[in-house]
Design a protein around this nucleic acid. Sequence first.
DNA 1: AGCACGCCGACT
DNA 2: GTCGGCGTGCTC
Length: 765
Amino acid sequence: MSKQQQSLFDDEPAEWEVDAQSQRLVATIVLGEGATGEYDYLVPDTLSDRGDYFLEVGRRVRVPFGRSNRKVVGYCVTLETKLVDAARLKLVAEVIDASALLSPAMLRLTRWMADYYLCKWGEVLEAVVPAGVRLLAGTRKVTLLSVPEDVRDTLGQLKLGSPQQRKALAHLAASERSLTTAQLADAVGCTAGPIKQLLKRGLIEAHEKRVRSSELDETIVERESPLVLNEDQQHALDAIDAALESGKPRGMVLFGVTGSGKTEVYLQAIERVVGYGRQAIVLVPEISLTPQTVRRFRARFDGVAVLHSHQSHVERHREWQRIARGDVQVVVGARSAVFAPTPNLGLIVMDEEHESSFKQDSAPRYHARDVAWQRAQAEGIPLVLGSATPSLESWYKTEQGEFARLDLPRRVSNRPLPDVLTVDLRDPAHTRFSRGAISRPLHQAMVAALRDEGQVILLLNRRGFATHVQCPACGYVAECPACDLSLTFHRQESILRCHYCDHHEPPPVNCPDCKSPAIRYGGMGTQKLEAEVRARFPEHTCERMDTDSMRKAGSHQRVLDKFCQGEIDILLGTQMIAKGLDFPNVTLVGVINADTALHLPDFRAGERTFQLVAQVAGRTGRGEKGGRVLVQTLSPEHMAIRAAVRHDFEMFAEEDLATRRQLCYPPFGSMIRILVRGPQEETAQAVAEGLTQRLRQETTGEEGVRIMGPAAAAIPKLRDHYRFQIQLQAPTLDPLRSAVTGATAKWKVPTGTFLAVDVDPWDMM
DNA sequence: AGCACGCCGACT
DNA sequence: GTCGGCGTGCTC
């Protein structure tokens, strides 16, 4: 496994040393950062198997490295007794972990990732083991309250000052375990005051205890029993069941429109898995990982662990340990939860499989779906991919018979899908009515929906007020000095902001170039739309939801709750409202501009547009009143929009796949994207050109390999870095991977210039 | 990533 | 003559 041993010494070994080989226990170590490669070390007897800190595969160690023997952290990936020249190996200095962080299977998975995604094994290992676990994030002291024995005995005869004190004391005496002040106050419905009084009078006592900091937030959730499945759901469940029992890996696409009851199928499949004494991992997009989602699982299973990026180190450490101990039946989490250290995994579910947040956009640039499939294959378990609009990669796999397809064609209780109509924005009859964002048909539909006491959702995928600030006299456009992108005007703060970096500046009073005072605030953002809606419907309540208005923690939930209770008539916002929950009273959804993603230089532009329209359309027609969707567009004849209007995913998939087949785009071919960036345009471009040349050399004679570029990236300058991209395509990934490895192996880019290699890229900007 | 080795310019 | 510039290569 490790590279051939090279001499540690410059001079040749003396003759008697040549045969100085002996059987020794050797650990192969991969460094967490720094040098790539695998290095052999001798394991001293003290670390071989005594005490807690003995060495085993999957634990971390500190080893002397380099001429200066500085101590570096590495992962033990193999441990074996073999014939080595002991004099040429150094010794492992220290074992860091009291237990293995990675099982042999997980080590193999990370190794596969490093090979597949062309990154360092150490880099993958550091991404797989959360920082909180690596840092052994800590514990915290809490003050716990209890009732002393002597008080408990005389409880009946006590004279108490206040009813609050009496209630608190009674509750604490009846409680099985000690409580904190906050917990007791919460349970009784009083403040800390009466409890302090009780403490002062010695009726309750306090003692300090060292606990894991987050042990306290265990919420008790009311249990729910399984729902009765309809015929389609039962069919899907049976198929998953059969796959579970086969003990073989099986990829399955659960294809169901929004509201068709996919989650209930997951829940009951997980029940079977738990019944076998195994664990399940449920992967959901970051944005859907809300308290409600988690509650839904907590209501059905005892041990539910949650993993996501907004947790503290301590919380994540605690969840990881619970999972590793086998205390958890279900792991619910975002992308990185695919690495959860479940001891006996039985099933992986990925909900909203098409979501882009499953692809990590920094190294290691893995896609959780593909890693999950790799893991499922290694463990011989099913992988269920749920979506109303599956990725064409997964869909194609079902057509090829590689994945099974499970259909949930009907919404539960057979509600029809909403009518979807397009509004052609090129038609002057629709827009003559106003210069704003809302066309005449949409306005009329809103009036009608609100009159019938329905609620309205409006989707606009651009935040801010005006998306470009321009001088009509000379054509000057306010641009970010660091990014070469136009600045967006935010009216609330009265500021121009770059949406790609932190730059912001006050809006100009006069044009900086020609001094004209007539600056125009063009382009429609959610803030401007909000102003227009409020002006048009002054008698109705309206709320805006985008990353600007949702800065504060919990505000997202607060708005959704208000909307659900009918306190808001019109909800408008960006993507994030397209992925909300079930709102039965929404009778109209308006898509302000369906074209925003349609003309981006990205082969998935159509797919994204279809998904967006289909998703937001799913927000309506969930109640008795039914619902309709109006899609405003300049390209009503575009296939993605026509298909979305008809709720016809299969038509969309068929046509888009045909186009991709012609152009050899995924899933018919593989793609690697390389981004070169640096602070000097000439250097970055020269590096990109040099790299392209090497790539062409590496691929001469290879069949069907295409190398495009270098070209300026879709965002040519970002955060003061100039960006150039190279796109590689071929029918299979292997020649591309070896070309990139060959072209970059012994090649050092100038300092300050960076390469990002993205295998199976998702983001083409 | 760090650290040493190495082969060229301005200083005691 | 030497001190030190950072290019190149290696680390078990």
